[in-house]
Simulated assay, not measured.
Amino acid sequence: MKQRVSMRDIAKAADVSVMTVSLALKNSPRCANATRRRILALADEMGFSPDPALRALVSYRHQKNNPSYSGTIAYINNTASPNLVKRGGYHQNLFDGASERGKQLGYKVEEFWINEPGVKRDRISQILQARGIQGLILGPQVSAHSKLILDWQHFCVVQIGFSLESPKFHTIGADVYKAVFRIMLELCRLGYRRIGLALNHHQDERVENRYSGAYLAVQNKMPSTYQRIPILCEDDIDASAFSSWYYMHRPDAIICGQNKCVEFLQAMGISIPKDVGYVAPFKANLDQFAHADGRQEDSGQKAVEILSGMIDRNERGIPESRMIHTVEPLWNSGKTVLRQGAAVPLEYPVE
């Protein structure tokens, strides 16, 4: 039986310490480039492969003990504004979750704004490398079908959400399809029969049409005698478009992530929830509204967990095939929906 090649064997052959071999195999910036290349070539020539039992033991010890500082993970802010993670809302929730898990795993998570005036994109990659940053969390992009160019080969990367279209990295985020599917089921259980969905076009595009997909899936399970309300999907929903859609179809419940739709209803003299039920797809800092809690902090934590493992395995650059990790949302009925009567009978299965 052929004996497994160890890091000690490589260290002896390369005339370096075992620690240097370990750093080289992790592609750590603490190991000089020339030394790292020489050790990696030697490890490949000698047929080295990590011992899975040893890796599991290291992982176990890492989780049980208070880890020492392992490095910095950059939370990439690709918006027009710096300090995004201190302004509350979606980005701060993600960042807070990532920071909390980072401390447990020995990483410091820092926001890194890449749109500072006068700083070119190739310079951004150089700055990140100079700071010894190996892991990047790409925060949600401003618009759907976004593209982002950096020197990816040097970094382990995960992205939050689906708005980054190119390149595609391993993805973490709230399960938008499951959220809307769950909302529809809960509304049907409350007896709502004419459920409408209103959203801006880019909202659906940002999540690869998961809003509309889930809505139509449950709508098609409702009895054929029930009214199918078409989705109100505009580039920018205004009061005129909303009121025309509402009076034409008379929904008894509305799913809408735009707070201005609440203002439209109020201006029309329509009471929530007396006249119409109202659900925000995700929590919009309005606890009284029915919503699906996207558990954004959990997405941030999961991003760091996955990234930490990628750094340990030296998985850098753009993956050949991405993995998608989704966090299942929780239903919160709030105060904007009411029992309407008997539950709507849905075609099986519905879960």
Rank of each mutant, 00 (worst) to 15 (best):
Q288T: 09
I255A: 09
S146I: 11
M19A: 14
S212T: 15
G139S: 11
D15H: 15
Q296I: 05
A241D: 08
S163L: 04
T225R: 06
Q219T: 03
H62F: 04
Q288M: 09
L199W: 08
T225K: 01
P273C: 01
A174D: 08
M19H: 05
M310D: 00
Q288C: 10
A292E: 01
L136G: 06
S28I: 11
N66G: 06
E111V: 10
A80D: 14
L199G: 07
G334I: 00
F264A: 01
C156V: 09
H202T: 13
N220D: 14
S166C: 08
V304Q: 05
Y278W: 02
V157E: 00
G88D: 11
G118A: 13
R316N: 08
E205N: 10
R8G: 06
A239C: 07
D204T: 10
I195D: 11
V218T: 03
G173E: 00
F282E: 10
S22R: 08
N200M: 09
S212M: 08
Y192M: 04
N314W: 15
S244D: 14
N78E: 12
K12N: 03
K335T: 04
I231C: 00
E45M: 11
A241S: 14
V304R: 04
Q104L: 06
A267S: 09
D252S: 03
K302W: 01
G294C: 04
E205R: 08
M19Q: 11
Y90E: 03
E351W: 11
I318A: 00
G161A: 13
A32Y: 07
Q92C: 00
L199R: 02
V157G: 10
S6N: 04
K168M: 07
Y348N: 15
G88Y: 09
Y246H: 11
S125I: 12
M248S: 15
E116K: 12
E186K: 14
S271M: 08
V157R: 08
V21W: 04
G132T: 05
Y246D: 02
Q266R: 11
C233F: 10
M7N: 01
F48H: 12
R193F: 06
Q153M: 03
E263V: 09
R4M: 03
S308M: 09
R210N: 13
K103Q: 09
A342R: 06
K103R: 10
E297K: 07
K86A: 13
K283Y: 14
D175I: 01
Y90Q: 06
I133T: 13
K86V: 08
K103C: 10
I237K: 00
V58R: 15
W245S: 05
G173L: 05
I73M: 10
N27G: 15
S49P: 00
S271V: 03
V58D: 15
K26D: 05
S68Y: 04
I73H: 05
I160S: 12
E234N: 07
I73N: 09
P345N: 05
D44K: 14
S70W: 08
S99P: 03
D9R: 14
A267C: 04
G191V: 06
V344L: 05
M184F: 01
K147P: 00
Q126I: 00
R193L: 00
Y226D: 14
Y278P: 02
K274Y: 01
H249A: 02
F282H: 07
V85S: 12
A56G: 11
A198W: 04
S22C: 12
A284S: 12
R313I: 05
G161D: 11
W245H: 07
R8M: 12
L25M: 15
S17W: 08
E315K: 01
S99I: 02
R339I: 12
